[in-house]
């Protein structure tokens, strides 16, 4: 029999336990618990969501003043209405790609040693976190639906109506990529916690930088070359910029295909990276105490 100490230090067992229905049941239970947890502070959450829209008012007014000052109809291929539509759409992108507390949570589990529960229980940590996050995202999207519908209703004049079905399909794909890249990127940052116990500071720097390089603040096309081209090669654009330009129909044909292919590649890269970092991290991880 394996002594308990050795079991703690062993890498997680392969997912051999349970048939498929049991595995599904297990993750469904996590999904349900996470859903309930998220609904506990609904008034606070709804208030926060509504307030988050208010800076949008100042953003709209600022860009109106910028366009008026420039005396031009279009800046870097964006007309005023498109610019506002873009900035509104980046909020949707971020709704899918932002993962508050994910990396910090992983690092905390390593630091406090609670990560050992994944090593002794028949559960994969990344799988658990992914299901937990999907549940949170679904509640967030459902609860934000009314305020977002209201916002987009009020701002409908900035849009040229709904895009066609094909574009909507591409947009859904771009949002899925935003979620996958966002999740596995932040999970990878959290794994750094195996080497450096405190990642909060690193996280602050990454998140601050991400706000700009993901195109959340302004379309990347507005930046001068080579910055614009360079940032479009990086994975961060998939977290805000790319889904927004797909919705607006600004990425078409070969450009769209290359964009989607890049997104899939970056997704695969971060999925593998987070796995590799987790495996290697566990190898050097040592748990002390009860």
């Amino acid at each position: 029999m394996t002594p308990p100490e050795a079991a703690i230090l062993m890498p997680p067992p392969p997912r051999a336990i349970g048939s498929l229905p049991l595995a599904v049941k297990k993750y469904l239970a996590i999904f349900r618990a996470s859903l309930l947890e998220r609904m506990t502070y609904r008034a606070d959450f709804l208030l926060g969501t509504i307030l988050r829209f208010l800076p949008m008012v100042t953003t709209i007014l600022l860009w109106r003043a910028i366009y008026a000052g420039s005396g031009q109809q279009s800046l870097a291929g964006f007309r005023y209405r498109e610019m506002i539509a873009y900035l509104l759409l980046t909020n949707i992108s971020r709704m899918f790609s932002s993962m508050p507390g994910l990396a910090g949570g992983v690092a905390r589990e390593v630091r406090e040693g609670t990560i050992k529960r994944y090593m002794i229980q028949p559960m994969d940590m990344i799988g658990y976190l992914l299901v937990y996050r999907i549940a949170h995202k679904i509640t967030y999207i459902i609860m934000s639906f009314i305020p977002y519908a209201l916002l987009f209703g009020v701002c409908h004049s900035f849009f040229d109506g709904f895009p066609d079905l094909a574009t909507l399909g591409e947009y859904a794909l771009a949002l899925a990529i935003a979620f996958v890249v966002g999740f596995f990127f932040e999970a990878s940052v959290g794994m750094v916690g195996f080497w450096f116990l405190e990642v909060t500071s690193l996280l602050y720097i990454v998140m601050t930088l991400n706000f700009f390089v993901s195109g959340h603040m302004l379309p990347l096309d507005l930046l001068p070359e080579p910055w614009s081209g360079l940032l479009k090669l990086l994975p961060f654009q998939y977290m805000a910029y790319f889904p927004a330009v797909v919705f607006l129909g600004k990425a078409k044909g070969a450009e769209l295909a290359w964009g989607l292919a890049g997104g899939v590649l970056w997704s695969a890269f971060f999925i593998v990276l987070s796995r590799v970092l987790y495996r290697r991290g566990l190898r050097r991880y040592s748990a002390f105490g009860g």
């Binding site: 600022l62 003043a65 910028i66 366009y67 000052g69 420039s70 005396g71 031009q72 800046l75 870097a76 500071s201 602050y204 720097i205 601050t208 930088l209 706000f211 700009f212 603040m217 302004l218 507005l222 930046l223 001068p224």
Partner: peptide, 23 residues
């Protein structure tokens, strides 16, 4: 982090005034 944040604010300002004479 604060230096970075200021740099971002200044970059935004530079991008805006590269295309507009006043706000």
């Amino acid at each position: 982090v604060e230096v970075l944040w200021l740099a971002i604010m200044l970059a935004f300002y530079k991008v805006v005034f590269a295309r507009s004479s006043n706000v």
